[in-house]
């Protein structure tokens, strides 16, 4: 880069800084923007003291201030806070299902499921249950795949936001639904015949909870991406407009 006596960075310099952060594995725009402004301020201050410094030299000095691991600790912590944010959103949504009036539907579903399980012949119960639940698992996996695909298509064309990525990484959830079968199977093997009513109740609660969580993760939260991003990132609208 050219020697510069400018005190303010140009648009090209800012673009260089964005590239610099991307090369150092800052892939999300929310973090890139904050780090770019920080580096830019640092470089401008260095130029005030020593105008003969090149852009690259000043940048190198500023970057060193982030320490041995560079941006890694900032990225790691940001991911952790966004995970907490996501869990809070999920919890808030699920809370609506355990309060009036939706709780009524949840209780009715659990009750109906218990009655169905009670009516099924004991020896074929688990097979029949699995046959009926497989379409639900397949549905959530298909919907989850669609959500992921939609997000993947955006990568490279649009800016990436950390929380947006979290909202669209839903592959683990449908699999956790499959894990539930193992739990049910485990409970079924180790329970005594006298526990059947209790067992049916536990299984019904697990299934309804599983369907609810999958529904919120795969359908509800991704459909609110725009709103959630606007509320989380004040820069989201600013960037979308420009």
């Amino acid at each position: 880069m050219e020697h510069s006596i400018r005190v303010k960075l140009t648009k090209n310099h800012i673009q260089e800084l964005y590239k610099f952060t991307r090369r150092r594995l800052v892939v999300h725009y929310d973090l890139q923007a904050e780090l770019v402004d920080h580096l830019a301020n640092g470089i401008e201050q260095q130029w005030q003291k020593n105008p003969k410094l090149t852009f690259d030299e000043a940048l190198e000095r500023e970057f060193k201030k982030f320490g041995h691991f560079g941006f890694q600790s900032v990225i790691k912590f940001r991911k952790k806070t966004m995970k907490t944010k996501y869990n809070t959103l999920l919890f808030k949504e699920l809370k609506q299902w355990v309060s009036w009036p939706r709780i009524l539907w949840v209780l009715l579903s659990i009750l109906s499921l218990v009655m169905v399980l009670r009516a099924l012949p004991q020896e074929y119960k688990w097979i029949i249950l699995a046959v009926f639940l497989l379409p639900a698992v397949a549905y959530f996996m298909y919907e989850g795949h669609k959500v992921q695909k939609r997000f993947r298509n955006k990568i490279g064309v649009a800016k990436r936001w950390l929380l947006e990525e979290r909202l669209h990484s839903v592959q683990g959830v449908s699999l956790s639904f499959l894990n539930m079968f193992q739990i049910i199977n485990g409970i079924a093997i180790f329970s005594k015949p006298t526990d059947i009513l209790f067992l049916d109740l536990i299984i019904s609660i697990l299934i309804v909870a599983g369907i609810l969580i999958n529904y919120v993760v795969v359908k509800v939260l991704p459909s609110r991406t725009e709103l959630i991003l606007t509320q989380t990132y004040p820069e989201y609208k600013l960037v979308s407009k420009s």
Binding site: A33, D37, P234, L238
Partner: peptide, 9 residues
């Protein structure tokens, strides 16, 4: 806010 060609948080 947008300040000097960049976003400031």
């Amino acid at each position: 806010a947008k300040v000097d060609n960049r976003i400031r948080k």
